[in-house]
Design a protein around this nucleic acid. Structure first.
Lengths: 251, 251
DNA sequence: ATTGGGTATTGACGTGGATCAAATGGGAGC
DNA sequence: GCTCCCATTTGATCCACGTCAATACCCAAT
């Protein structure tokens, strides 16, 4: 049995009792799927979240080709999404942290389009799509916010296309660090000091670069006094300097 | 007055009378927003399309930053979407033809995230988002299909990220040609002979390449007997050969 | 404490595609 | 039909990043 498959079977489903009105009591509700719902609407969606599921580091929450039936909100932990090309080459298409929703790529064909892999031990809230569809018809705020989340994913991906299409290596990496920083800050973590959950290779795959290029850029930023970096630990010293790496681009 | 603004004001709105049950009579209904709706549902959505709007070649249907209030289905013609970076660099994020829906990027922030520019004289169906929201609550098939369209856009963009992140220049261009071919075929046009609506520069921008590289790849494919290309006119000679440009990638 | 395998850093070198440049072609506007 | 401007092609050269390689590092398992 492949290790990932073994791990999957070990995943424990948390007790349903814990989940009553899961969203109403969740500290991520302001940035997660129920964002913007009224108190009353929050009560209406207390059957939205089916179950929480643990996903261990390295395990796939879902894989490309599996039948789609739910989207997932990251409760804690960290994920990457990844698409694999026919010849085996693959590309990381995103990194996801608490409050972010993944799996919406599965709606179009009824099967997931990518793999979602946990980069650390994680917990997700499973949201059956059929139930979401039903509730969205009754709870206007939920419908609106779900549409926003899908749209936000479209916008996010356009941003990545921009990274990949027009930015140079150091610009991509500066943008990547600033984006991580800003998302961590929105969750109450330090914007200036954090640990990378992913390897240089995964960062490179996401940014269309090789791991050596990522490593060299980190070293350069370190030398230039923009950041301090030691393995996975990052400290941003000069936010403006980092922004200038790409904003000041002249050609 | 800027030229684009002038052109926009010249756009004529087609008579409302023509639009009664616009979708039910539209030859694109099988691939457009109402795809999969029952006859009865088709009748229910006859107020969905607000108005058709002509957009002349070079004119913007909408621009990044404008207030979002509608999505658009391409009725005829051809569009590109484009995002512009703060320093003026821009990237083409997609090309859109009849039956495809654009503008969904606007839902997340309430303003459009990109420009949509007509590459030839075009006509779009304007679908007010507020009305779509309301109808989606009543017409299950519409809700489902709208979600699919958003999801399809997410999947499409992951595909482009793959192009940009891992494929080499000639692979990107082969994939681009095959994708165009397949979409034209789905609309009843010839899969093997068509005219490009966009310039080499626009293709390059979409694929993260320079126009010279695009031109050279076309010339190479021509020399290799995979296509015949003369200016905008393309004829695919060897579909399998074109697929092999990327499927046979070994490293 | 030791070992081993995955991860990261750094240097040397190669190359795919960018850049620069020049010539040709074609279509929109007069 | 003429003109001008923009699109395209093609060649020559450059360089950012990939590739290859060697070493160092970290942590998990023993």
């Amino acid at each position: 049995m492949p290790r990932a498959e073994f791990l999957r079977q070990q995943s424990t489903h948390l007790a349903l009792a814990e989940l009553k009105a899961a969203c109403a009591n969740c500290n991520l509700r302001e940035i997660c799927l129920p964002a913007g719902l009224t108190e009353q609407e929050l009560d209406q969606i207390d059957t939205l979240v089916d179950v929480r599921r643990k996903v261990r580091r390295g395990e796939a929450l879902y894989r490309a080709g599996e039948v789609f039936d739910a989207i997932f909100a990251v409760r804690s932990g960290f994920f990457k999404s990844r698409v694999t090309f026919e010849d085996g080459r693959d590309q990381v298409t995103g990194f996801f942290m608490g409050g972010e929703v993944i799996g919406m790529d599965g709606i179009s064909h009824g099967t997931y389009n990518c793999d979602a892999v946990a980069l650390e031990d994680s917990v997700v809230c499973s949201i059956p799509y059929a139930r979401l569809e039903d509730l969205a018809r009754e709870v206007t705020g939920l419908q609106r916010h779900f549409h926003k989340m899908m749209s936000r994913e479209i916008v996010r991906e356009s941003g990545v296309m921009m990274l990949l299409g027009v930015m140079r290596a150091e610009e991509r990496i500066a943008a990547f660090l600033l984006n991580l920083s800003q998302r961590l800050a929105a969750r109450g973590y330090s914007a200036l000091e954090f640990n990378l959950r992913m390897t240089r290779e995964e960062i490179g795959s996401y940014l269309g670069l090789k791991l050596e290029t990522v490593s060299r850029a980190f070293s350069k930023f370190h030398t230039d006094g923009l950041i301090k970096i030691d393995q996975k630990s990052v400290r941003i010293i000069d936010v403006e300097g980092l922004k200038n790496v790409y904003a000041r681009h002249v050609r």
